[in-house]
Design a protein around this nucleic acid. Structure first.
Length: 504
RNA sequence: GCCCCGGUGGUGUAGCCCGGUCAAGCAUGCGGGCCUUUCGAGCCCACGACCCGAGUUCGAAUCUCGGCCGGGGCACCA
């Protein structure tokens, strides 16, 4: 997979695993980690980086990796997202050993629930939401907590029957209503949801909450190390407690802070809003940090991997990454494999008097053996207007790989020049050029969506129109190239010659 | 409001657990130079940080306390 996308890169950038700090209590061959996506939205770079960490640690310790869909809220989960995550993980070169969905295990959860009720550790509560949250806030138990086991068992049965309305009853854990950790204050374990699930349909109406499902699954899957972001920190105590009641083993938790990329939203709701408002085109908009977005944007999965390992610590501080840090890694990987092409933005015609007609051989790369193309030249060339505007009449200019000319006449639409010499003359500015045999090219230039002050960036997506040498037409969709003196770009669309600017 | 957790150059990190070897390493960025038939790459040089205060100590980025700032949590979401 990776070899296909970025041939030759793997060998050169192997040491990534070595740079990860050691995992606590990790025994080689016995480590089991997991990818726990909720299939309720498109995968983004945060899922990816977390997945990379889990994958690399499993690999580093010669362990195993689970892909486990946390799909216990049928109202949020949608079928298309399962595959979106599988595809996304694969794109990053993450291979997992086992796969399951929590929704497969409802009967198992029910068994454990009955067990908890029997032991007098859980009760059916029919308080409404406000009462429950008030009770939690005030640290007071409600009357249902004192119900006898027999009653709880029959109420639980009633819940499972499917006859109860949503919100009328939940199963709660007897935790500690006076705990400082609010998650411990008799949390809800199961609730009633009358909504079809994309995988199991209408079979179940009683669904576990995150904590009970994760507590059981992490144990059942034999997870030894949970690497996750810190918003779950308060759940550790709860999940461990549940497992201790059930006689299950708990994993080691390694938590790190959440992060974001500067000026780029990651939250599902926010992205959805931007799409609805027409500010971005969709989930694959190149300005977004969704997997589809960064793929279109031309960022290499290998670069994200290396970035994750090298620029990411297991820190607790909130991080705001500058995109430049990622670009630097990406550029380093792209530079040796990206062919160079001539693209002239905002072109101006140059007529060169006395120009020799040449069949020029232009190398696709200044130092790597990436081949060359032949270009037949005459006396008419197009060069970037901006480069010519910097010059005065009488100054010299070199058409890269061809010859030097001297500018005679600078008009708005035409530059008249005269051929001077073939050999390189030091100090003469060099520009890229295209002949009359060229193709129209447009380049989308993405930038951050939000400015530093939080306002929308009015120039978050610019379009640069220009012309490219004929060979540009052969660039395959998804291929990354460098337009010389312009920047690295990726061919976006199969039908038009449309590119997306990656970085300089 | 309450409860957790953090604060190292512009940015991301290493170091902090086990105080000295840290007048703080790396990457990126910015500035300058070299090289290069790209404003890319490469090479070299330079710039730039331990949130504040008190305490412990011969000695604190590292330990303690207080403050300030930031993040997270307080769901029948995950």
């Amino acid at each position: 997979m990776l070899e296909e996308i970025a041939p030759g890169l793997l060998g050169r950038h192997k040491p990534e695993e070595k740079k990860l700090p050691p995992l606590p209590n990790a025994e080689p061959g016995k480590v089991v980690t997991r990818l726990p996506p909720e299939p309720s939205g498109y995968m983004h770079i945060g899922h990816a980086m977390s997945g990379i960490l889990n994958y690399l640690y499993a690999k580093m310790y010669d362990g195993k990796l689970w892909l486990r869909f946390e799909d216990t809220n049928p109202r949020k989960v949608r079928l298309e997202y399962y595959e979106s995550f599988r595809k996304g993980y694969r794109w990053f070169g993450i291979e997992w050993d086992y796969e399951k969905s929590n929704s497969e295990d409802l009967d198992l959860y029910y068994d454990y629930a009955r067990e908890l009720i029997r032991m007098g550790l859980a009760y059916v509560c029919s308080c409404n939401k406000e009462e429950m949250s008030r009770g939690r806030f005030m640290m007071v138990e409600c009357a249902h907590r004192q119900q006898p086991v027999e009653l709880n068992l029959s109420l639980w049965k009633e819940m499972l029957s499917g006859d109860l309305e949503e919100g009328s009853a939940v199963l709660r854990l007897k935790g500690d209503m006076t705990s400082k950790n609010t998650a411990m204050r008799d949390p809800t374990l199961f609730r009633i949801i009358h909504h079809p699930h994309p995988l199991v349909g209408d079979k179940y109406t009683v669904w576990p909450t995150y904590d009970i499902a994760a507590a059981i699954e992490d144990a059942v899957c034999g997870i030894t190390h949970v690497l996750r972001s810190s918003e779950f920190a308060l759940r550790d105590e709860l999940q461990n407690y549940i497992r201790s009641l059930l006689g299950l083993r708990s994993p080691v938790f390694v938590e790190y802070s959440r992060f974001e990329f500067k000026g780029t939203p990651l939250a599902k709701r926010e992205i959805r809003r931007l799409i609805e408002q027409g500010i971005v085109s969709g989930w694959d908009d190149p300005r977004l940090a969704t997997v589809e977005g960064i793929r279109r944007r031309g960022l290499l999965p290998e670069a994200i991997r290396e970035f994750t390992v090298s620029q990411t610590g297991l820190t607790y501080t909130k991080r705001v990454y500058a995109w430049e840090l990622l670009y630097a890694v990406n550029r380093r990987m792209l530079d040796p494999v990206a062919r160079r092409y001539f693209f002239v933005p905002d072109p101006i015609l140059v007529e060169v008097e006395g120009a020799p007609e040449l069949r020029a051989e232009l190398p696709y790369h200044p130092s790597e053996p990436l081949g060359k193309r032949l270009v037949q030249t005459g006396s008419r060339f197009y060069v970037p207007r901006k480069d010519v505007q910097k010059l005065k009449e009488g100054s010299m200019l070199r058409l890269k790989h061809l010859f030097n000319v001297v500018l005679r006449e600078l008009a708005d639409d035409l530059v008249r020049a005269t051929f001077v010499s073939r050999e390189v003359v030091e100090g003469v500015p060099i520009v890229q050029w295209v002949t009359e045999d060229h193709v129209r090219v447009e380049v989308l230039v993405p930038d951050v969506i939000y400015l530093d002050d939080g306002q929308l960036n009015p120039e978050s997506l610019k379009t640069v129109h220009g012309i490219g040498e004929k060979a540009c037409a052969e660039i395959k969709p998804g291929e990354r190239v460098q337009f010389e003196r312009f920047g690295f770009c990726i061919r976006d669309d199969a039908s038009a010659l449309s590119f997306i600017f990656i970085h300089t």
